[in-house]
């Protein structure tokens, strides 16, 4: 039997008792999802998928990655993405495809040789489509994770204006090389945007730094200087001071202050602001 002969068989298998098959399929999937998707919704999804699949097979396409299968893939992509977003597991996603194999199984008991061959061929296609849903599912999950990471980065690295001409970045949490780089670029851009000549990098909330992070800090301070601004580092913990010295990183002539308040006082002084205590008591 040639490949081509399998198509009428596969179409027949799927369409012989169309309605019953579809209902069985929806039942199986609905059972595994335990009512977390409405039956109507599931019915719509699977009917569309079923129609597209039969259509493709009628056209003589049984390769999951062929052009003729693009409609099926588009539907599966949508299905997998939705499942991933709604928090379903990979199994609960792929079951939508694999359940069809289950529903067709009775054919194996009393079908003709041709039916069985058609079942096996169809099984192979459904396996590929099942894998495709898992791929799409995990890709969607990765996208979600990376966009969350971006959001977190955005949230965790504010550049704030402390005074006219003085900006600060309070860094909190563990710094990795990528995050440090983002923060530093933001800081330098903020210098330009606000026309600030003083910047304070406060690392009170940073538990530890490694060589790379310390190097990035250092490079940023040098870059700020090249642009015509000055940076002060405040809140260096004793452990971090030890690391920096132990790593032999040259912090050179970089100005450091114990606290953000001290750094602000210095920055204000450098920008020519005088602070006096008020309260009506003359000096």
């Amino acid at each position: 039997m040639t490949q081509q002969d399998a198509f009428p068989g596969m179409v027949k298998l799927l369409t012989a008792d169309g309605q019953e098959l579809a209902t069985g399929w929806v039942d199986r999937v609905a059972g595994s999802l335990k009512g977390r998707i409405s039956r109507n919704e599931l019915d719509r999804e699977l009917t569309e998928l079923y129609t597209a699949l039969v259509e493709a097979l009628r056209d003589g396409v049984a390769d999951a990655h062929a052009d003729g299968m693009s409609e099926v893939r588009a539907l599966l992509t949508e299905l997998s993405r939705n499942r991933a977003r709604q928090g379903f597991s990979p199994t609960e996603t792929a079951i939508s495809v694999f359940a069809l194999k289950h529903v067709l199984e009775p054919v194996l008991q009393d079908g003709s040789d041709q039916d069985i061959r058609a079942y096996l061929r169809l099984g192979r296609l459904l396996d590929d489509l099942g894998l495709f849903t898992i791929e799409t599912y995990s890709r969607t999950r990765e996208e979600i994770i990376s966009s969350q990471a971006d959001q977190l980065l955005e949230l965790s690295t504010p550049v704030i204006k402390l005074w006219d001409g003085v900006i600060a970045v309070p860094l909190v949490g563990t710094l990795d090389s990528a995050r440090t780089q983002v923060v530093m670029e933001k800081l330098l851009q903020a210098l330009v945007d606000t026309g600030s000549e003083q910047a304070i990098i406060d690392i009170t909330g940073v538990p530890a730094v490694d060589t790379q992070v310390a190097q990035h800090l250092l490079k940023t301070i040098v870059a700020a200087r090249l642009m015509g601004a000055e940076c002060t580092v405040s809140g260096i913990r004793p452990q971090i001071a030890q690391t920096i010295v132990a790593l032999g990183i040259e912090f050179g002539d970089i100005v450091t202050k114990a606290s953000l308040a001290d750094a602000l006082r210095l920055a204000l002084k450098k920008s020519g602001v005088e602070i006096t205590r008020g309260g009506g008591v003359g000096r």
């Binding site: 330098l188 330009v192 026309g195 600030s196 000549e197 870059a223 700020a224 200087r225 642009m227 015509g228």
Partner: peptide
């Protein structure tokens, strides 16, 4: 030297140029 862009400054540091002896400011006015 005024108006150096952040990306340019970062690149110069990476390149190993410190522009010793050159005074810089954020913009023309400064």
């Amino acid at each position: 030297v005024v108006g150096m862009r952040p990306a340019v400054a970062i690149t110069l540091v990476e390149l190993g140029l410190s522009l010793g002896g050159v005074r810089t400011a954020l913009n023309l006015e400064k």
